[in-house]
Write a protein that binds this DNA or RNA. Structure first.
Length: 594
RNA sequence: GGUUCCGUAGCUCAACUGGAUAGAGCAACUGCCUUCUAAGCAGUAGGUUACAGGUUCGAUUCCUGUCGGAAUCACCA
């Protein structure tokens, strides 16, 4: 039985029999707390069509439901709102259905989605902005998987270009053969160090040239460092073995560093694309577009597309010298992806600064007649900012990912030890268990903080107070789960097997809890359709709040009788399972005890 | 200048796609641990939803305009 569908069917019947009207799209919503009931029908929209006062319509529909619909207990018409209360037996039936746990993952749809996320540059370590990207991408992947999609997670690594050459050049100049082992630095941090060194050197040279009388623009072009870096790039493109060897060595270190961070975060990929393999792709598509008359060639030989009819500008797709620009290779990569995966959907997790780029990219693919173009989606998210303003790698105002991870785990450790000492439970955890717990809580808090916000809004990260351990935060959710597991362990010790089928004394908070548990499927669907993990985060948090009230109000192991206890244990089990599943989809683990 | 996104309590965020008296969490204040884990629960206080119009039974939500913030409009990626 599905409550919403049953109610809709009877409401439709009511309109038919009372007013002789067929009504579609009956919207039911959750009843506001201040009113009695759980489901509300808004009848204002029908008032005009039926020529009656909203309150009268509500009253008539209500009377009909009470009389005819077997799951309705009573109805309350308030102005144009009809608040419906269901029979307790209906709620017990819902609980019974939930106990079969079929709602956690949907049947396979035979649809494939490719999710691209993270996609870092190899010249510096990951930072807080990447973390938002990574958590969003990983969570979206799990959500689509639970929703029945076949999911392929991928990243495209930006491993070539002038920025890599900058690090390489600085390493050649100052590196003296330093390695991650000899320096004790993670590979990505080591390379990041040289990137910063390059920038310092470059700025000094620019300043000097300006002092000598050049304009800023000229100085930036003529500085020795940048010219050497460009020479290096040319050599790299020609396949100069010395440059390529250096490139391979340094990139290798960076990958080791990235992989260590990914492992720590608990995320992974099914495949990796490298720009060094794909940067020449897309030129044949340009040719195809020219032949189809979608692109046009300027006198200098550069190739463009006119998007003014779509309210956009003219856009360059190939340089006059025949080399690619960013969008050229993205066109090629899209085709390549489709060749590899024949996906129905492709989600690019990329910051909102590239909104325009993706708009153009999708539009061009559509004009080219690519069938897969309709399935492309840019999951755009806002920047993470600091109270001092935007993060800029070159200015050293970034929050490094590895540092941040250590920091939140440290905070979690301090907080957890404090709690354990207060409760005198520390001795019941082994050292290994404790370390694992600190990590789970620290990372959970960080992930939740970044995921609980609507992606298209920017995030303000305040190091002092952003990662919470109380209230609307992961530790509260993890704590709720641990609490439930504790009760369930105790219940097992003196296991009873009473039936709750005739449990009649259903408390109102128990109804609220069942209602919320049954909402899981809706929350998942809503989150998937909107590409929005925050909807799921919000759902789980709400569930935990409801459970906490239930926990405070309804004794479980000391319930008034055996059937009440058994029923509440079922609610506990379902809540724990729902929390665990929901958090899993966010990429967050929950502990058995804490 | 054009385009897009954002503006909600002191702070950080919600509001089920147009519904009822706009809700949570931090921070502040008051209670509750000899009873299943107090990272919790109960309560107080905090709002002209940036501003001005419009659409209608009804607007934080849709439309127009104004103000403020951000991004983008690169032969960078």
């Amino acid at each position: 039985m599905n409550i919403n569908e049953t109610l809709r069917a009877f409401i439709q019947q009511a309109f038919q029999e009372i007013f002789g009207k067929k009504v579609e799209n009956i919207a039911l919503q959750a009843t506001k707390k201040e009113f009695e009931g759980t489901h509300t029908l808004v009848v204002f929209p029908f008032s005009k069509e039926l020529g009656e006062k909203p309150a009268d319509i509500a009253q008539k529909i209500g009377n009909f439901l009470v009389e005819k619909c077997p799951i309705v207990e009573k109805c309350n018409a308030v102005q144009g709102f009809l608040n419906i209360s269901l029979k307790k037996t209906a709620w017990l039936l819902v609980a019974k259905q939930l106990s079969e746990k079929k709602h956690f993952s949907l049947p396979a749809k035979n649809l494939k989605v490719v999710v691209e996320y993270s996609s870092p540059n190899t010249n510096k370590p990951l930072h807080l902005g990447h973390l938002r990207n990574i958590f969003l991408g990983f969570s979206i992947s799990r959500m689509f998987s639970a929703y029945g999609y076949q999911v392929h997670k991928t990243q495209i690594i930006n491993d070539r270009g002038i920025h890599i050459c900058k690090s390489m050049l600085a390493y050649e100049l100052f590196g003296k053969g330093e390695t991650p082992d000899s320096s004790g630095l993670k590979g990505d941090h080591l390379i990041g160090k040289y990137y910063v060194m390059f920038d310092k050197l470059y700025k000094e040279q620019v300043q000097k040239l300006i002092a000598e009388g050049l304009t800023e623009e000229e100085a930036e072009k003529r500085a020795e460092a940048i010219q050497k870096a460009q020479e290096m790039l040319v050599k790299w493109e020609k396949g100069d073995s010395q440059v390529v060897e250096l490139w391979k060595k340094l990139n290798g270190w960076v990958y080791e560093g990235f992989n260590a961070t990914y492992a720590k975060l608990g995320v992974n990929f099914d495949s990796v694309y490298y720009e060094s393999d794909t940067y020449l792709l897309g030129k044949d598509i340009i040719q195809e577009g020219l032949e189809k008359g979608i692109f046009y060639k300027k006198e200098d030989g550069s190739i463009w597309i006119d998007l003014t009819a779509e309210g956009l500008d003219h856009k360059l797709v190939l340089r006059a010298d025949g080399t690619s620009v960013y969008i050229t290779q993205d066109l090629g990569t899209a085709d390549l992806r489709y060749k590899h995966h024949q996906m129905d959907k492709m989600i690019y997790v990329v910051g909102n600064e590239q909104d325009y780029h993706f708009k153009v990219l999708f539009l061009i693919l559509k004009k080219l007649g690519r069938g897969y173009a309709d399935g492309l989606h840019h999951l755009s998210y806002g920047m993470v900012e600091l109270p001092t303003g935007k993060m800029k790698s070159r200015e050293g105002t970034v929050v490094d990912a590895d540092d941040l991870i250590e920091e939140v785990i440290g905070l979690a450790k301090a907080k957890t030890l404090e709690k354990m000492q207060a409760a005198r439970t520390e001795s019941s955890f082994s050292e290994v268990e404790k370390e694992k717990l600190f990590e789970m809580i620290g990372l959970g808090a960080l992930k939740y903080f970044l995921l609980k916000i609507d992606p298209h809004k920017k995030i303000l990260y305040n190091p002092e107070e952003s990662v919470n351990f109380e209230g609307d935060a992961a530790p509260f959710i993890q704590y709720t789960h641990a609490r439930i597991r504790s009760v369930l362990r105790k219940a097992q010790e003196n296991n009873t097997n009473a039936s709750w089928e005739n449990y009649a004394n259903l408390h109102s908070i128990e109804i609220t809890l069942i209602y919320q548990l049954a909402e899981y499927a809706n929350a998942l669907q809503n989150a998937v359709e909107k590409y929005a993990p925050y909807i799921l985060a919000q759902y789980v948090y709400e569930l935990c709040k409801i459970f906490s009230i239930f926990y405070a109000e309804c004794p479980i192991l000391k319930a008034e009788n055996a059937e009440a206890m058994q029923f509440r244990l079922l609610l506990c089990e379902l809540t724990a399972e729902t929390i665990k599943q929901g958090m899993y989809l966010l990429g967050i683990d929950v502990p058995e005890k804490m």
